[in-house]
């Protein structure tokens, strides 16, 4: 079973293992949730209110998620996307395979430390404006598996999260409610505030 490639698979494995250990060392505290939308001082200027309204309407009416189903919650995400609970009526039926074309990352399922560097990389590859929705208790806090040696206790250790949807797995209606809350959050955004 000899590898014909330039790198040996053991070298590749060791390099990735080092990256994972470094990420564990850096992620001991959760990242605070983005709460700019709560600020009272950022009153938008009168000049840009209509621009804001149109931009926010455009952004929230066609949020394109990136394919990031990890575990069981991915099946409820797929069930939301097919014809019974139709996510296409919100403009979100295009699950993009490439993060460069997506706005929203629905983290559905348990995140393990081995997968965490890939999550960070996909998040960094998404262009602004971008949002993260943590679906299911495993993404919120580790869930049923919290305390295990290889489970990240909550996605907010790695990326900042905008909406949390609890459930194990959450029903498609619950996910749609969470997406509705995300739309309300986007509606309060303004281009006058730097992200």
């Amino acid at each position: 079973m000899e590898m014909m490639s330039v790198y040996s698979s053991l070298e590749l494995d060791r390099a990735e293992g080092l990256a994972i250990d470094e990420l564990i060392a850096r992620s001991q505290q959760p990242i605070p949730d983005p709460d700019r939308w709560l600020e009272e001082e950022r009153r938008p200027n009168v000049l840009i209110t209509s621009v804001d309204a149109v931009l926010n309407w455009g952004r929230r009416s066609s949020v394109w998620p990136v394919n990031f189903g990890l575990a069981c919650c991915a099946f409820e995400m797929i069930a939301t996307a097919v014809s019974r609970f139709d996510i296409a009526r919100f403009g979100m039926e295009l699950f993009r395979a490439s993060p460069r074309q997506a706005d929203l990352m629905i983290v559905s399922g348990t995140l393990t430390w081995k997968m965490a560097p890939q999550l960070k990389r996909i998040y960094e590859q998404m262009p602004e404006p971008k949002w993260v929705l943590a679906m299911g208790v495993c993404a919120i806090s580790g869930g049923t598996f919290a305390g295990s040696y290889s489970v990240v206790p909550g996605v907010n250790r790695i990326v900042p999260v905008d909406v949390y949807v609890p459930g194990c797995p959450p029903r498609p209606e619950a996910l749609l409610y969470g997406i509705g809350m995300l739309h309300q959050k986007i509606a309060k955004d303004s281009i006058a505030v730097k992200r």
Binding site: M1, L10, D13, R14, E16, G17, L18, I20, D21, W113, K114, Y149, S150
Partner: peptide, 15 residues
């Protein structure tokens, strides 16, 4: 090909 399969290379210990 005896190497770690479920955990990452560099993990210390055997759970």
């Amino acid at each position: 090909n005896l190497k770690r399969i479920l955990l990452w290379e560099g993990f210390e210990g055997h759970p």
